[in-house]
Design a protein around this nucleic acid. Structure first.
Lengths: 191, 191
DNA sequence: TACATAATGTGATCTACATCACCTAATGAT
DNA sequence: ATCATTAGGTGATGTAGATCACATTATGTA
C-alpha cells in the first residue's frame, strides 16, 4: 500500500471524503523517515506538527528525575503521535518521541490541520472522532492500571498488540506497563 | 449564575457563538436534577446522552469482580460526564455514574449533539477541543500513576482540586487514586 | 431518641513488586 | 575479528502499600 492509500483507508473508517477532498487534505502531509533511535520531539522543543505512522514504531515517553523512563504510547502503522498538550496549548514539549525501529511517517502541521478543518467539515469530524477514540483508549488504560496487576496488564497488552512482542525490547514493554524490567522478565519466564 | 450562563461561559472559553447560535444549541439541553446516591448510568444500560454538571458532584466508576471500586472521574461544575465508549460506539454501558452529592445537570442527547454539530460548525470545533483536553488530562493521570507514589498522587489531586477535600468522602478519593482507604488515611494523618 | 449504617482511624501482618548485584547473550561498530 | 554496548535473566533483599481485624465517630432514618 502507498502512504496515500494507508492514510485514506484509515480516514475512511470514520468519514467519507471525495477524491478531491482527500487529495487536498493529503497535499499537506509531508513524508518523513527516521532511523531507529532518532528523536522526533524532545522535552522543551517547540511542537508544531503531528506524525501519522506508515511503518515502524515510535514511542512517546517521559524520563523522571531518577532517569526512569515511562512510556505513554507506542505508535504503530496508522497511529498518530505528537505531544498533543504542547501542540494544542502552544507550550514547549513535556514528553519525548523517538523511533523504536526505523519509521516512516507523514507529518502534518497544526496550522495546516486547522486550515483544512475549516475548509472541509468532514476532516473536522474525523479529528473529533479520533480524539474521542484516544480518550476512550486512555480511559481503558487507566482502568487497567487501577484494577490489574503487572501480569494481567502484560497479558492484556500482548493480546491486544501481539506484534509488539517481537518488535519492541522487553524493557520498553516494562516501561509502558509500569513495572520493572526484572519483574516483567520473571512474569513471562515462570508460569 | 443561571444554567444558561454557566454553559455559555464554559463554551466561550473555546469558541464564540452568536446569541442565536447559542440559544439554539442550548435548547437541546434538558435540566435534570439528582439526589445524592442516585444513579445516572449503570453497567449494561443503553447510553444515549451526556451530562453537563451545573452544581454538585458526579463520579464515574467501575466495580471489579472483588467488589472493589475504581473511580475514573469526579465531575464538578462545568465538567461533562457520560460513558463515552458506550455513547460513541453504541455499546452498553461498561461503567457506572452516580451522584456523590445532590447534583444539577444539563442533559444532551447524542443525536441532538450530532445534529447541532452538523448545523453549527463552531459547536463541532468546541467538541473537538473538549475531547483534546480530555485526552491530555487522562495522559497526565497515566503519567502520574506510572511515576508517582500514593502520597504524591494525593497531594497532586488536593492541590489541583482542593474542593474535593470537603466534598468527597476519603474512601472515594482513595478509589480515585488507586490506593486503599487505610493507606490513604495513614498518608495524611502522619507526616 | 434510638438504632442502623456509612465513614474513618489504627495496629498487625502479608505480598507484589522494586532495587541491587551480577551474570550471559545478542547486537553493532571499527 | 574484536570489543563495547545493549538486552535480558536471576538470586537476595527491601519496601510501599494491601489486607484483615477491630475500634470509633459521624450520618441518616424510623
Amino acid at each position: 500500500m502507498t502512504p496515500r492509500e494507508i492514510l485514506r483507508q484509515h480516514i475512511q473508517k470514520t468519514i467519507l471524503l471525495s477524491d478531491e477532498q482527500f487529495s487536498y487534505f493529503f497535499s499537506f502531509f509531508k513524508p518523513m523517515s527516521f532511523k531507529k533511535g532518532q528523536q522526533l520531539i524532545r522535552v522543551g522543543d517547540d511542537v508544531d506538527c503531528e506524525y501519522f505512522v506508515l511503518s515502524g514504531c515510535l514511542k512517546t515517553f517521559f524520563v523522571n528525575d531518577d532517569q526512569k523512563m515511562h512510556i505513554l504510547q507506542f505508535a504503530l502503522q496508522t497511529w498518530w503521535a505528537s505531544d498533543y498538550r504542547a501542540l494544542y496549548n502552544h507550550e514547549k514539549a513535556s514528553v519525548n518521541i523517538d523511533c523504536v525501529t526505523d519509521t516512516e511517517t507523514l507529518c502534518l502541521h497544526a496550522e495546516d490541520r486547522e486550515k483544512v478543518c475549516k475548509e472541509i467539515r468532514e476532516v473536522e469530524t474525523f479529528l473529533r472522532w479520533r480524539s474521542n477514540k484516544g480518550y476512550i483508549s486512555l480511559q481503558k488504560r487507566i482502568l487497567s492500571l487501577l484494577n490489574n496487576d503487572a501480569r494481567s496488564r502484560y497479558e492484556e497488552l500482548m493480546q491486544q498488540y501481539p506484534e509488539l512482542y517481537n518488535l519492541v525490547p522487553k524493557h520498553l514493554i516494562a516501561a509502558y506497563l509500569g513495572v520493572s524490567r526484572e519483574t516483567l522478565s520473571r512474569l513471562y519466564n515462570s508460569k
